[in-house]
Design a protein around this nucleic acid. Structure first.
Lengths: 167, 167
DNA sequence: CTAATTAGTCAGCATGTCTGACGTAAAACG
DNA sequence: CGTTTTACGTCAGACATGCTGACTAATTAG
């Protein structure tokens, strides 16, 4: 399971299954890293009587103050109904507040309350060490590469989506 | 890949919130990339009457022929009961076969059938373009960095787990 | 032979997501 | 101004995926 260094000389004639193996190793890594990162801190969450769905909403509201509901839906890619249940829990628990946007009062701006911020910080403290260590150990160049690749993977790529594939 | 060494020169005076911002951008990227990668191909899945949980099992069985049930549980990090429901669907659907391991007949080896392989390939065809493009556009050094960082994130890190944190 | 290991099952519950149908307020538009 | 569109909220019901706990069965290890 050694390294892959020679990628740039990757022979154009290299069989597809080699290429596929490289890509699938990426999928494996993405899965495992996601698992680890997004389950760390479940304890604090449970202690607050919330689940992972609440955490995701909390996280992205923290990351994007004054986020609109529609924008959050776009990030989470779930339905309005699903989000609203989660959001109502967060509102009732006093973790999040919701106010009409001043410019367009149809929209509601979402923000963490002090209590929400406190929880979010506790969750972050739980997962930060893993992130920090991985980034530090890998080094800045590796981190730059990590970002490049993930940015490319995230790019929601309309081309592929409209090729008639079932999607 | 270049040197890693420079991490410790990261300005010791840089405020923590800058560091945190960098790490959180990593979380954002991980979330979005995961979303895109692990939902592409849902159509083919639905057409087969299966869900994402089935897909994950299918994928890791494809990746690790003769995988034992316990090993799969370890990868997916779900309970035996949850897995068995999924696995029974896959067995009944004829996507997976299960045979006692020759050396230790308590264990069952899991493998894709021809039908399972066909489905897995269809799913892979759906997600490969995204992976391939992201890897190609980012370049081999970036891919190496991507692997380094994700490997670090995946490392299931007993230290942090036993610090008394609620986990 | 007894223990431990590996797997499978039943029953019930919690969580998270979906579809579909409505309702309301505010803004945009002609 | 009246109509349509947008952004949000909600009710009802279903499905998908995960969990706990309790128990059984087959096989291997000591």
């Amino acid at each position: 399971m050694s390294d892959v260094k020679r990628a740039e000389t990757r022979p154009l004639g290299s069989p597809l299954y080699l290429r596929d193996e490289e890509l699938k190793q990426g999928v494996d890594l993405l899965f495992h890293a996601f698992s680890e990162v997004f389950t760390t801190g479940d304890g604090a969450l449970r202690a607050a009587g919330l689940g992972r769905a609440h955490r995701r909403a909390l996280y992205f509201i923290a990351r994007n103050p004054a986020l609109s509901v529609a924008a959050l839906l776009g990030i989470l890619k779930i339905t309005k109904q699903s989000l609203n249940r989660v959001l109502n829990d967060l509102l009732e628990g006093g973790y999040v507040e919701r106010r009409p946007a001043p410019n367009d009062r149809r929209m509601r701006q979402l923000r963490l309350t002090a209590k929400g911020l406190e929880l979010e910080e506790k969750l972050w403290e739980a997962q930060r060490p893993r992130l920090a260590r991985a980034f530090r150990d890998a080094g800045p160049d590796a981190v730059a590469g990590f970002r490049r690749v993930l940015t490319g993977l995230s790019a929601s790529d309309r081309r592929a989506r409209n090729t008639g594939e079932i999607q």
